[in-house]
Write a protein that binds this DNA or RNA. Structure first.
Length: 323
DNA sequence: AAGAACATCAACCGCTCCAAA
DNA sequence: CTTTGGAGCGGTTGATGTTCT
């Protein structure tokens, strides 16, 4: 694999030999990489600094996990891709020991094809059939989602259900699309996604920061479920900052026509910071909206609702500190 | 068995970002 | 404020491996 070696101005290209690898590893272990540009000369390599950096970060680094991606890793990639698009480095920050290059390759060679096969657009993460008919498009969408899950999930599930939820909405792939995706009226339960979009637009300078507070943390096994309604606090931010177990409440959401019931099961997470977009949404709603309840409202009402929330965020220092 | 077609993934290229001068 | 250069990112390439016909 790789490319055939070529020599330009004494700089070697193409696949690395074992000897070159050994030289690079030995040098970095002893001296650190320092300036990549200066490294090849010091390490006795006829490579450019860029090539050395790439070889080290994508292959030789000791903290790299190689081999097959686990189911959880796959789901994490899909979730994050739905939110971040092709921001591989940001996605890689949530997959310990995996490199952005590896994730990118895995997406292009496996996951993208798999989603396409399932009838899901790998760019928007929306069902390709959803817009083609006026017949219950959410039903089709849900069918595609369930089919996707059935194929993706082969064992017991205890992973974030953010994937499920985000598939009901627009998957932003850039800051620009984040902005535009806020404009059109959407089904009320898209508010989970809107929460993230709103925060990213108002509180974060870039999407990478958003990724860093994504709900991808270690699930806690064997913890008794809490009712979503048990999460009540005057200061919602302190709730999810300090709580260990946030919720594990089964929730039923209705689609926009109130015709199809969609069962959603939330997952318990353990962490000291924000763990789930729905938790955020529901905590913020304890000001009278009621946690997790279905809300039928028009776009204007939604806009006003989110303006209030964003005002609240702006006045809350502990919230800001999380980000 | 052999060639074609497809899949995989290490590595390169060109671009952007950002800190330092 | 502008310029410069290093580092990093995402898209793409192409050699090699695998499957299909």
């Amino acid at each position: 694999m790789g490319r055939s070696p070529s020599f330009v101005k004494g700089v070697k290209k193409g696949p690395w030999t074992t000897e070159e690898d050994q030289k690079l590893v030995a040098y970095i272990e002893q001296n650190g990489h320092g300036s990549w540009r200066a490294l090849p000369l010091k390490a006795g390599l006829q490579r450019c600094g860029k090539s050395c950096r790439l070889r080290w970060t994508n292959y030789l680094r000791p903290d790299i996990k190689r081999g097959k991606f686990s189911l959880q890793e796959e789901q994490t990639i899909i979730q994050l891709h739905a939110l971040l698009g092709n921001r591989w480095s940001a996605i890689a920050t949530h997959l310990p020991k995996r490199t952005d290059n590896e994730i990118k390759n895995y997406w292009n060679t496996h996951l993208k094809k798999r989603l396409t096969k399932m009838g899901i657009d790998p760019i928007t993460h929306k069902s390709r059939t959803a817009g083609n008919t006026n017949l219950s498009h959410m039903t089709q969408w849900e069918t595609a989602r369930l089919e996707a899950e059935a194929r993706l999930v082969h064992g017991p599930r205890r992973v974030s259900n953010f994937y499920q939820r985000i598939h009901h909405g627009v998957a932003p792939v850039s800051n620009k699309s984040l902005v535009s995706s806020l404009s059109p009226p959407q089904p009320p339960y898209l508010d989970m996604l809107k929460a993230w979009q709103g925060i990213s637009l108002y509180k974060l300078s870039n999407v990478t920061e958003l990724a860093q507070c994504m709900p991808i943390v270690n699930p806690v096994e064997n913890v008794e479920p809490l009712s979503l309604n048990e999460i009540t606090t005057e200061d919602p931010t302190s709730n999810w900052k300090n709580s260990k177990v946030l919720f594990n409440a089964p929730e039923t959401l209705k689609d926009e026509g109130n015709q199809n019931m969609v069962e959603m099961s939330n997952t318990i997470y353990e962490d000291g910071y924000l763990t789930d977009a729905l938790t955020l949404t529901n905590c913020l709603r304890n000001d009278g909206g009621g946690g997790g309840e279905n809300r039928d409202c028009d776009f204007e009402e939604e806009t006003s609702y989110w303006s209030n929330i964003l005002d609240k965020l702006g006045n809350n220092s502990s919230f800001s500190s999380v980000f």
